[in-house]
């Protein structure tokens, strides 16, 4: 049978702007993926624990508070700690261009800025998830 791509869409940190995360969730669903949405104000620890229990292929992080440089790499580090470094992590939100290289170096596979077509995000996930 066909393999379903499972994606966790999560909002780390304290901002409550979840429109973007919901739009992305919906778009991924319409692309045939199974999306777990956990709501706003999640800690990196909660996000990683959820990702491990749900055995997701990918995590999408949305952050509009400016705390992405701390929160996104923390998620990647915790995944490594749990032996789940094969999970594809991508991010989105209000993220200054100059922060992107650092985030990528920290293990965030891609950053999607405002104005990104959901098609691009879908294609990126489909092309990059590793399904064991």
């Amino acid at each position: 049978m066909d393999k379903k791509i499972k994606v966790l869409v999560a909002k780390p940190g304290l901002d409550g702007h979840d429109r973007g995360a919901k739009v992305v969730s919906r778009a991924l669903r319409d692309a045939g993926m199974e999306v777990i949405y956990t709501g706003i104000r999640q800690t990196p620890e909660q996000i990683v624990a959820t990702a491990v229990q749900e055995d997701v292929d990918s995590i999408g992080l949305s952050c509009l508070s400016g705390a992405h440089n701390k929160l996104f790499p923390k998620v990647v580090d915790l995944l490594k700690e749990k032996g789940a470094e094969d999970v594809l992590v991508f991010g989105g939100g209000i993220i200054p261009d100059e922060d992107i290289p650092g985030l990528k170096e920290a293990g965030i596979a891609e950053i999607f800025l405002p104005g990104t077509s959901t098609e691009d995000t879908i294609a990126f996930i489909k092309n990059n998830v590793t399904q064991a």
Partner: peptide, 28 residues
């Protein structure tokens, strides 16, 4: 979704207080 085969699984939103409890395992 009967159309795309995808799904949004949102039940966990209400249960995230247990995310870090080893005694609780939630699967959507």
């Amino acid at each position: 979704s009967p159309f795309s085969g995808g799904a949004i699984l949102g039940d966990r939103i209400r249960m995230q207080q247990h995310a870090l409890d080893d005694g609780v395992f939630i699967r959507s």
